[in-house]
Design a binder for these strands. Structure first.
Length: 470
DNA sequence: AGGTTTTTTCCTGTTT
DNA sequence: TAAACAGGAAAAAACC
């Protein structure tokens, strides 16, 4: 596998250093905290490029291309060095954070890599972009091992970084449009089939498995179209919908186990024992969501990390955590506010926070303690701060209103709440609850009120780490 | 062991 | 009228 993978890699010597010298990019600091974010990561690509891009884009001087489409670019590297395609290519690189990673073009993949290199201050000469000459769908399906093969020293970081972006993208973007082009009534099962064909053509990734056609593996996708998935859905609802892509087994579906995707399949979700093994692909993020038995997990740390912190280990890959499906339709686990009294009237829920029913973890059994709940960086305000630093969420779901004064606004308040709930393994999180927690920060001067502005908050003197240089 | 911290949940009422 | 805001109350659960 390793040998064939290496052979498959285009043997070019072009490296990131050369790339950067061809295309001046913003400094790492600008990447971390883009001022203003819209300029670096425009919500929608302009239909024609600006005449002078020097202010924000460095000293790029570009002649206006006569025609410039942002769709379907397949520019070769030589093409990219022409002034016209320079602009196109740069636009597309910065557009990576405006679409689901599964839909990234090669250029957007490169944009993501450029960002990751800057964000995590990786040594550019160690990362050969040509080794990642894949589109987003392929990148997402690459395993940790494959990342490490393509980039021996920093593959892990890139793997975790794309994992993080993928996790966030679940709430922001529809992962399937690339496979749903065509009639609007395209069903998910057709998409799955198309995706399967796409997988079969992958250079690096083994096709699924057992040579079973996808329609045999997943005979009923429920006719869900991509349009049915709304980022504003509460994530347990999304969970049900996305979770059926492909359909999850039911307790009565005895045939499912014999039809499950094999372990090489990008759809293969892995058994419990597989989590944390080296054989991971990010394609798991398109499977029904799983939670660990412990709400919050401590993340692996890179003790020898060269500079700053690297992306969190995705807790879904933790090997020492019990894994169980999030979707649980059993009566005792139904949301309490949906319980019906024997008389038929809805039962009013008791005040206060309901006790979480959580099976004991191995840690609890051996040490008598659960993992830390409020470990460093786990506080809500820190989470919000980090969303503001992340170009895949800023400005899409949260954005600076006044970068210097620390004033920011929730653009998609429910999406932020969903992400926070996801982080805390709490599918019932809403913006209403999140905002209550935010209001508690006023007293502690972590946040300050911004009167007469809805969804707008301001960092207070007790908040740290949000300024450009601290 | 018990207080503290940081949420989470529910609620009533108000403002936009 | 809906969404957001404000803040009280109670509780969970890890932290100290």
């Amino acid at each position: 596998m390793a040998e064939s993978l290496k052979q498959a890699i285009d043997d070019t010597t072009l490296d990131l250093g050369q790339f950067l010298s061809n295309f001046p990019i913003p400094t790492p600091a600008q990447f971390a905290i883009p001022p203003p974010s819209e300029a670096l990561f425009p919500p929608t690509p302009p239909t024609s490029p600006p005449n002078n891009m020097s202010s924000t884009w460095g000293n790029i001087k570009s002649e206006q291309p006569s025609s410039c489409t942002l769709q379907g670019e397949q520019a070769s590297f030589t093409e990219l060095q022409t002034p016209q395609s320079n602009y196109m290519s740069i636009q597309n690189q910065f557009n990576w954070c405006n679409s689901h990673p599964m839909n990234w073009s090669y250029t957007q993949v490169r944009g993501f890599l450029t960002w990751a290199v800057a964000e995590y201050e990786l040594p550019p000469h160690e990362i050969n972009f040509e080794h990642f000459r894949v589109n987003g769908a392929k990148l997402c399906m690459m395993s940790r091992e494959e990342f490490s093969l393509l980039c021996p020293n920093y593959g892990d970081i890139l793997y975790l970084s794309i994992g993080k972006v993928l996790e966030e993208a679940q709430y922001l973007y529809d992962p399937t449009p690339a496979f749903c082009e065509g009639p609007s009534d395209t069903t998910m099962s057709e998409s799955v089939r198309a995706m399967h064909e796409e997988m079969m053509n992958m250079d690096f990734i083994q096709a699924p498995v057992d040579d079973l056609p996808m329609q045999d593996l997943f005979p009923d996708c429920g006719g869900i179209t991509a349009d049915d998935i709304d980022v504003n859905d509460k994530f347990d609802d999304v969970n049900v919908e996305l979770g059926d892509f492909p359909p999850s087994p039911t307790s009565t579906d005895e045939s499912y186990s014999s039809m499950s995707p094999g372990r090489n399949s990008p759809y293969y979700c892995g058994s419990e024992s597989d989590y944390g093994s080296g054989d991971q692909t990010l394609g798991n993020l398109f499977m029904p969501r799983y939670e660990t038995s412990d709400g919050d997990s401590d993340h692996d740390s890179y003790g020898s990390s060269p500079r700053r912190s690297y992306p969190d280990e995705l807790h879904m890959y933790d090997s020492d955590k019990e894994v169980k499906p999030t979707v649980d339709f059993s009566v005792q686990n139904a949301p309490i506010n949906m319980k019906i009294k024997p008389g038929g009237a809805p039962e009013r829920r008791a005040r206060g926070r309901p006790r979480k029913v959580r099976p004991p973890t191995e840690e609890l059994l051996t040490t008598g303690k659960r993992g830390r709940q409020h470990s460093k960086g786990n506080h809500l305000w820190e989470f919000v701060r980090d969303l503001l630093k992340n170009p895949s969420t800023n400005p899409k779901v949260i954005k600076w209103e006044d970068r210097r004064d620390g004033i920011f606004r929730f653009v998609q308040s429910e999406a932020v709440a969903n992400m926070w709930g996801r982080k805390k393994n709490n599918p019932n999180m809403t913006y209403e609850k999140l905002s209550r927690a935010m209001r508690y920060y006023y007293k502690r001067q972590i946040l300050q009120q911004v009167p007469e502005r809805r969804l707008v908050y301001k960092f207070g003197p007790a908040a740290t780490g949000w300024q450009d240089k601290e």
